[in-house]
Design a protein around this nucleic acid. Structure first.
Length: 330
DNA sequence: CATCGATGTTGAG
DNA sequence: TCAACCTCGATGG
C-alpha cells in the first residue's frame, strides 16, 4: 500500500506519540503474542523508517521491524498529537484530536480533503470511525476501542492506541539483525542525507544492466520508491524505463536522486504522492483534490501525454504495471 | 452486495 | 514465474 513517504509519516506519529512513553503491547489476533510480551511494559526509545520499513526500539537488543506490504495499515485512536512536520502543510500544527477518534494511515495518505488536519474532524468523509462512534461525534465511549478485525499488534500509552493489521512483516529483532536488514537496503534520503546516499545510489544503479525501471523499484538500490514514484520519476527525468542501468549517465543518476529527495519530502509533508509539484494556484488545488490530476503517467494508460500528446503506454515489468510515455522518455 | 485490484515482498517450484 | 499474504477502497450489478 504505501511507498516510503507513508512509512516516514507513520514513524513520525510514533515518535511524537509513543517515544518516551511506557507502552503496553498486545496481539489481539494472536500471531505476535510472544513478541508483544517482550516489549510490553517497556519504554519506546526510538522510532524511525528506512525505505518502506519501520523500526521501533524498546531496548538495546529489542527491536520491532514492521513492513506493511501491499495492504498493511496502522490505525491510531485516542488523543493523537499530530507531528508538527507533517501537519505543516496547511498551517494547523500540533493539533490534538478528541479521544476516541480513529485515524488510519490510509486516511492520512488519501485525498486532499483528508489531510492530517482531518484528525478530530469526523465530518471529513474518510476518517475512519470506530463502531462505537456511529452515534456520531468525536467522543467515543471506550478507550481503548475494541479491536476490529485481525489486529496483529496493538501498542498503547495512557492516551493513544495504535493498531496494526495486515502487515507483511512484524517481528522482534536483535540489534544485529536490525543492522543486517538496514545494511541490505539502498540509501533513503531521509535516513542518509547528503551526497553519501546520492553516490551510493549512483554507483549501484550504474553497475547493473537491469532496466532502470526495475532498478528504481529495487530496495537494495534505493529504499522507499514504489510503483507510483518509479513511473513518475522516470517521466520527469525523460528516461526510458527499459534503458539498462549501465547506460544511465552520472548526471542523470544524480538528477534522479535529487528528484527523489524532493518528492519524498513533499510526500512526507503532504501525505500525498504529488509528482506534478510545479503546479500553482487552481491547478495545484485540483491536483491535491483529485488523484487523476496528480500524476504525469501513473494510471494514465491510453490517455494523451500531458507534455506531447502521445498515448501513455502500459506494460508489465517484473510483474508490476509500468506506465510511461514512449515519446518523452528515451 | 460481490468482485476486483492495489502505492509490496517472500518463498516455493 | 507465480501463489500467498489476508485488507479494504473502488467498481459494477
Amino acid at each position: 500500500m504505501p511507498e516510503g513517504h507513508s512509512v516516514h509519516r507513520i514513524a513520525k506519529q510514533f515518535a511524537t506519540n509513543f517515544v518516551g512513553h511506557t507502552v503496553v503491547a498486545e496481539s489481539p489476533q494472536g500471531r505476535f503474542v510472544d513478541g508483544a510480551a517482550v516489549i510490553s511494559g517497556r519504554e519506546l526509545l526510538e522510532a524511525f523508517a528506512v525505505g518502506k520499513q519501520m523500526f521501533l526500539r524498546f531496548g538495546e537488543d529489542e527491536w520491532v521491524r514492521i513492513h506493511l506490504g501491499i495492504y498493511g495499515a496502522w490505525d491510531f485512536s485516542g488523543d493523537i498529537l499530530v507531528d508538527a512536520t507533517i501537519a505543516s502543510a496547511n498551517g494547523r500544527m500540533g493539533q490534538t484530536n478528541q479521544r476516541g477518534t480513529v485515524v488510519s494511515d490510509r486516511v492520512l495518505d488519501s485525498a486532499g480533503e483528508n489531510s492530517l488536519t482531518s484528525i478530530g474532524a469526523p465530518r471529513n468523509s474518510r476518517v475512519r470511525m470506530g463502531e462505537e462512534s456511529q452515534s456520531g461525534g468525536v467522543h467515543s465511549a471506550h478507550f481503548p476501542p475494541e479491536p476490529v478485525g485481525q489486529v496483529r499488534l496493538r501498542l498503547m500509552t495512557e492516551t493513544v492506541c495504535a493498531d496494526l493489521r495486515g502487515p507483511t512483516a512484524c517481528e522482534l529483532l536483535t540489534s544485529a539483525r536490525v543492522h543486517a536488514v538496514m545494511d541490505a537496503l539502498g540509501p533513503d534520503p531521509q535516513h542518509e542525507p547528503g551526497v553519501a546516499g546520492r553516490n551510493r545510489f549512483t554507483d549501484r544503479l550504474r553497475s547493473k544492466k537491469t532496466p532502470v525501471g526495475q532498478l528504481l523499484m529495487d530496495q537494495s538500490i534505493v529504499a522507499g520508491i514504489g510503483n507510483v514514484y518509479r513511473a513518475e520519476m522516470l517521466f520527469r527525468a525523460g528516461i526510458d524505463p527499459y534503458r539498462p542501468g549501465t547506460l544511465v549517465t552520472v548526471d542523470e543518476a544524480h538528477a534522479l536522486w535529487k528528484d527523489w529527495v524532493k518528492l519524498l519530502a513533499i510526500g512526507i509533508e503532504t501525505g500525498q504522492m504529488m509528482t506534478m509539484d510545479g503546479l500553482r494556484g487552481k491547478k495545484w488545488e485540483a491536483a491535491m483534490a483529485h488523484r487523476a490530476d496528480r500524476h504525469w503517467v501513473y494510471k494514465r494508460e491510453g490517455l494523451p501525454c500531458r507534455k506531447c500528446g502521445t498515448n501513455i503506454q502500459l506494460d508489465t515489468m517484473a510483474t508490476r504495471k509500468l506506465y510511461w510515455c514512449p515519446s518523452c522518455q528515451t
